[in-house]
């Protein structure tokens, strides 16, 4: 294992992390406001699908990402209607939406896109930043990626700023913690939650779009393969904070990148253990540091005036 090997590992990890990061940041925003999205996986899957569909229809990468975003928002909107208007249990609605998303995208892949025409017209190009991308070892990993990857990392401080430095962010924290008290301070609980949920849908949709448009430009059934659940785990492991979620995503992605290479190296670690690691460490962290792993108090509880 040479330094070059590590450099390549880093390149892979950072590219793997970007879609996860979008989804995890979206979920941080949403859970801060007290809305849990078990259907994060479904948002990503639909985003991945509509992204490809948009690319095929328009041949324009910006339109493709816009339709990926719209796909995520669509799933979020259905969740919002079920939970905020009809008072459905957030977790149950999320599970149902996952089933629906998987069924609908698989079905439409064959029936609407045509199973053989899955190769997208456009994919995301790499956009190396001059000079910086030539830095030895880390240059390629950090500065020779696509624009969406750069945006994913810029989104970390952006979400941090949104949640801690803006009145909107304070309102989200308030409605996720004590909705009744927030209401008594004049915060509109329902509006705030809708905003957080739709924002989460948009980010998760982009993350899903990045999975397909940033890679081979191919949509296959269940292309997300549980990435949305890893993003959920990252939010918990990152203790519901943007920077924490970023750390968790990076850790999980490094392990994932390592796992792919470890098989090639023939290391005596079962790769399946590494694949299961994000879930295992999240459970262990929850069990061991339960007092410090405090979710927003009103998480997954619908608010009724």
């Amino acid at each position: 294992m040479t330094l070059d090997w590590f450099s390549l590992l880093l390149v892979a990890a950072i590219a793997l992390a970007a879609p996860l990061l979008f989804a995890a940041l979206g979920e941080v925003i949403s859970e801060t406001a007290g809305v849990i999205n078990i259907e994060l996986e479904g948002m990503m899957l639909v985003g991945a699908f509509t992204g490809i569909a948009g690319a095929l229809a328009s041949g324009n990468i910006a339109v493709a990402f816009a339709s990926a975003l719209a796909g995520g928002v669509l799933v979020a909107a259905v969740q919002g209607i079920a939970c905020f208007i009809f008072g459905a249990n957030q977790v149950v609605a999320g599970i149902v939406l996952n089933i629906l998303a998987l069924g609908a995208t698989t079905f439409l892949l064959v029936s609407a896109l045509g199973a053989d025409v899955t190769k997208s017209a456009v994919t995301l190009e790499r956009l190396p930043i001059p000079i910086l991308s030539d830095i030895p070892y880390i240059g390629r990993a950090l500065f020779d990626q696509s624009i969406a990857v750069y945006l994913a990392y810029l989104a970390v401080p952006a979400v941090w700023w949104l949640l801690t430095r803006t009145r909107f962010g304070l309102a989200l924290k308030a409605v996720g913690e004590r909705p009744a008290a927030a209401e008594s301070m004049g915060v509109n609980v329902l509006k705030s939650r809708w905003a957080a949920l739709l924002l989460c849908g948009a980010l998760a949709g982009i993350g899903g779009g990045l999975l397909t448009l940033g890679g081979l430009g191919v949509f296959t059934p269940n292309v997300t393969k549980g990435i949305g659940f890893i993003a959920l785990a990252a939010v918990i492991f990152g203790r519901w904070k943007p920077v924490g979620a970023f750390g968790a995503v990076m850790l999980f992605s490094l392990v994932d990148a390592f796992q792919i290479r470890a098989q090639a190296l023939g290391l005596p670690i079962p790769y399946q253990l590494l694949v299961a690691l994000p879930y295992l460490v999240t459970i262990i962290a929850l069990a061991a540091f339960v007092s410090r792993m405090r979710p927003p108090a009103a998480l997954a509880i619908n608010y009724e005036r």
Binding site: V78, I81, A82, I85, F86, G87, A88, N89, V92, A93, V96, L97, I99, L100, L102, G103, A104, T106, F107, V110, S111, P221
Partner: peptide, 24 residues
């Protein structure tokens, strides 16, 4: 893959409608 997909769509929709119906 279409067969299981259509099951999932029908399944998801029927439970989704139940959730909304019960909520109402």
């Amino acid at each position: 893959g279409v067969s299981s997909a259509i099951v999932m769509v029908a399944a998801g929709l029927s439970v989704g409608y139940v959730l909304i119906g019960m909520g109402a």
